[in-house]
Design a protein around this nucleic acid. Structure first.
Lengths: 149, 149
DNA sequence: TTTATATAGTTGTCTAAACAACTATATGCC
DNA sequence: GGCATATAGTTGTTTAGACAACTATATAAA
């Protein structure tokens, strides 16, 4: 019997992740007010490409904790928006390398500022130590449950 | 300038809530293995009805942090599964009161055990103090961003 | 070298979230 | 009573997540 046997009633807030959905909603709202017409899911993919351009779809799966069909469709939509391009790899013809367009590069500066601002709104009144602790707990939960995608 | 100005790169884990989706996936998997054929979203609605039967859809919205269309469709699906029934309120004919069926009552004992077990899997190696701290941070984030639905 | 197996990506189906627009009932005010 | 407004719920559309089934290419074993 683990020492942290939980009262059943405490389940809810952990399961629903209402804090993360609240952040997501606020970020989406801030994008909209700045006339940035992408979803936060699309943004989260671009985010990794801004760090390193030319990732494969599989690398995007690993980076964003999504499965392959999800990334296929996110890349589909980003391609429709002309924000990325699929380029077949010459080394391994199974792979698509995903490259940012110029339009996507322009988005980076603008949205990074909005994201930073959103996070500061979210974390007002929370200390760095508390944030680190919370992140550590969430990471531990993730690691406990991680199963191969 | 808040004292917790965040490195931009730290955004990701907060925004995606991968820990909460990991818990959701594991709970769904545990349901499936026990032949419980409902989604965790449906379960989260039933959870509140087990605490108090006969809530209105609006009360379910408040309890589950969902908007009205989401609850309409979750109740639609729960009704198709014959787990709840909509009963028009006599006091206020705009309202549907949602009541559990006998079938849903049977699910409670079984799924509560699975949920408790899942949470213990998730929180292995995390102390109660750490859990409390993490919950406090997530609650604070939620409160910082809470806006009327 | 051919055959099995693993990996990268796609497609189909179902469920759900977000948002806008809508209907119907209730309430408050003149 | 009649009109404005608020509240409860529904419907349509788009995007996305989960899962299974699929194609195509690459790798390893026989």
């Amino acid at each position: 019997m683990p020492n942290n046997q939980f009262k059943r009633g405490e389940l809810y807030s952990f399961i629903t992740g209402k804090a993360s959905t609240a952040i997501a909603r606020r970020l989406q709202k801030n994008f909209k007010e700045a006339n940035v017409e992408i979803t936060i899911e699309q943004w989260s993919v671009l985010y990794h490409l801004w760090k390193q351009d030319g990732l494969s779809q599989q690398q995007l799966c690993d980076a964003t904790f999504r499965d392959k069909p999800s990334i296929t469709r996110l890349v589909d939509n980003l391609e429709k928006l002309k924000l990325v391009k699929r380029v077949a790899s010459k080394d391994d013809r199974r792979m698509n390398m995903i490259y940012l367009t110029n339009e996507a590069q322009v988005l980076q500066e603008q949205t990074m500022g909005l994201a930073s601002q959103t996070l500061n709104e979210a974390l007002e009144g929370v200390t760095i130590e508390q944030i680190e602790m919370a992140k550590m707990v969430l990471q531990k939960v993730y690691d406990n449950l991680a199963n191969p995608l």
